[in-house]
Nucleic acid binder design. Structure first.
Lengths: 336, 336
DNA sequence: CTGTTAGCGCTTTCAT
DNA sequence: ATGAAAGCGCTAACAG
């Protein structure tokens, strides 16, 4: 295809292949003059080393893989953004694989990576209950692996997550402090640990509160109209004065339902929601949000991965980095 | 690192390296018996061919690159999703690079790919005005390149886009047909062709309408509060009875502002918006949306790319595939 | 049907 | 300071 390789440069310059190679890697045993000549020609011809050849030789690929359950999702988009930033800084390439929440796809993809296609892997697990022998194999093979968001608790790798439980407690306490006597929780349809953690935060905060109000959990589905109906019914029947939405989309539906029922926000009902992009809070400044540091999760996870890649020592102490969410109460818009 | 290579398999089975290689590629000149033995051992040891070695030998990498301006964006997430689907089907890997709308990053990344790191490239341009010599070089080097969304009109490669102009005309006509006498257009802060196309659709539709109402364009910014203020002022001053939002986020703000001003939707003002995920229409069924076939753009672009990769003939007739957007009027929610 | 061998482009001893 | 040569793991042309 492209004939501009080291051999060609060497011939053009009347140098040996190894001299050119060393010059390009700025070796100390090459004269400044020779280096200059080599660099000049390389630049002129836009010489690019063949990644397969150097990879084959040096056992590295300048490539990392990121494996996520889905991508049409603000949280994961932001994480990727963060990872990508660090990856670019390091001059690496980023392979992206989407498992669509399917554990078997995760397994087969990971297995396809064990043989030196990448120098390291960033993973958010598709299923937290299934087996993880494929991941143990990565450790065996010495391929650095860093978990983020959906981790494998029992494995000894670095994990980067957010404070789902704690921020959920905070959110609930926020509503309690605002005087809510009856707080409903809108549960997203996800049977994974982060969903569980968030709900536990809500439940525990209520349990520990002075009023000891009973929990009011509304299970939601993946169907908008269905959710809208359930929320409307719940609002009409139970008349909560506070709503805690576990994901942003539910907060948006909730806002719309409140309008329909002529419920004023925040006078009649206060809403708080987990959120990544704060679309919900565009609607009304009093839709307070708990914003996850998604971008920072990407940045942190990537940094941890590169530490391992560069140290070459796979082992190291297992760390669990927990990044704090932010309680965002937007300032009142203009002269509302 | 991992010692399980062809040589090792060969030794274990008392076969020659080439026999094993041929068996693994299911060559017709290997006995079924031998193949069976080889496959069995390969599976048992989870043998994976070294991608660098086969890449170096065969000049292919089973990898494509996708280059986009940003990723925290429903449109691009959906496109990636579509691309990823086809990529997985083909057994390829997907490299993702984000330019952050910076033309120079696009150039340097593309230049780093010219030397056989990928078998093909999918690109949405960061800047449609700047020079594209780096892209011409790809054609020279015979690396297949397919454009999507933000294309390079003057280049002879396949382009996959949506009908921004036509659907904008349709949207405007939709409002006209619904009886709107004064339609405002909310222009997103993007100085690229798709923004221009959308606005032209609006302008031309008005020009061609019986009433010949004058256009009313409100330029928006990247600041939510600022947008909210401008929209509010415009609604109060101009009192339009129809609003055409060029991006979904503006429709959401608009919805919120209408609530504040006690404007009923759709009785007082009708809203239509470009959209990818229909967040806006969660708010109110009468927020009609023009939904772009983002996922299909990914699928189509990827298919076109693989055609070129597999045909090996880079050339071919230049095609421009235009996918149609969908005018979505959601059914009324439940028993509203 | 199976084995031998020559590279793909690069890095890296080992010589000089 | 430079060159010769081996070899990373794989495929394929060329023998048998």
């Amino acid at each position: 295809m492209n004939k501009i390789n080291i051999k060609y440069l060497a011939k053009e310059l009347n140098l040996s292949i190894s001299t050119v190679s060393r010059a390009l890697s700025d070796s100390y045993e090459i004269s400044a003059e020779t280096k200059a000549k080599v660099f000049a020609l390389a630049r002129q011809l836009n010489y690019q080393p063949n990644p397969n050849a150097s990879g084959l030789r040096g056992q590295k690929t300048k490539t990392i893989a990121i494996v996520i359950p889905e991508i049409v999702n603000d949280f994961f988009s932001l994480v990727i953004s963060g990872i990508e930033k660090i990856t670019q800084e390091k001059g690496y390439y980023m392979l992206v694989y989407i498992t669509h929440e399917d554990h078997s796809m995760e397994v087969s993809f990971i297995n396809s990576l064990v043989k030196g296609r990448v120098d390291g892997i960033l993973l958010s697990r598709s299923s937290e209950q299934d087996d993880y022998s494929h991941l143990l194999e990565l450790n065996d093979k010495g391929i650095p692996l860093v978990f983020f968001d959906r981790v494998c608790e029992t494995m000894d790798n670095v994990k980067v997550t957010t404070d789902n439980y704690e921020s959920s407690v905070t959110a609930t306490q926020h509503l309690l402090a605002a005087g809510c006597r009856k707080i409903a929780y809108l549960q997203a349809p996800r049977n994974i640990s982060i969903g569980q953690l968030r709900m536990n935060g809500y439940l525990d905060a209520l349990k520990d509160s002075p009023g000891k109000q009973p929990p009011l959990v509304l299970e939601c589905t993946n169907d908008h109209d269905e959710n809208s109906m359930r929320i409307k019914k719940m609002l009409a029947t139970e008349k909560p004065d506070g709503i805690f939405a576990s994901i942003e989309k539910l907060a948006v539906i909730c806002y719309s339902v409140c309008e329909q029922l002529k419920l004023r926000i925040p006078e009649d009902v206060k809403i708080i929601s987990f959120s990544n992009l704060q679309t919900a809070s565009l609607l009304n400044p009093s839709l307070t949000t708990i914003t996850q540091p998604a971008f920072d999760i990407g940045v942190t996870a990537a940094r941890e991965l590169f530490k391992r890649i560069e140290k070459k020592s796979t082992g190291g102490t297992a760390e669990h980095v927990v990044l704090k969410s932010l309680l965002v109460k937007r300032k009142s818009t203009s002269t509302r």
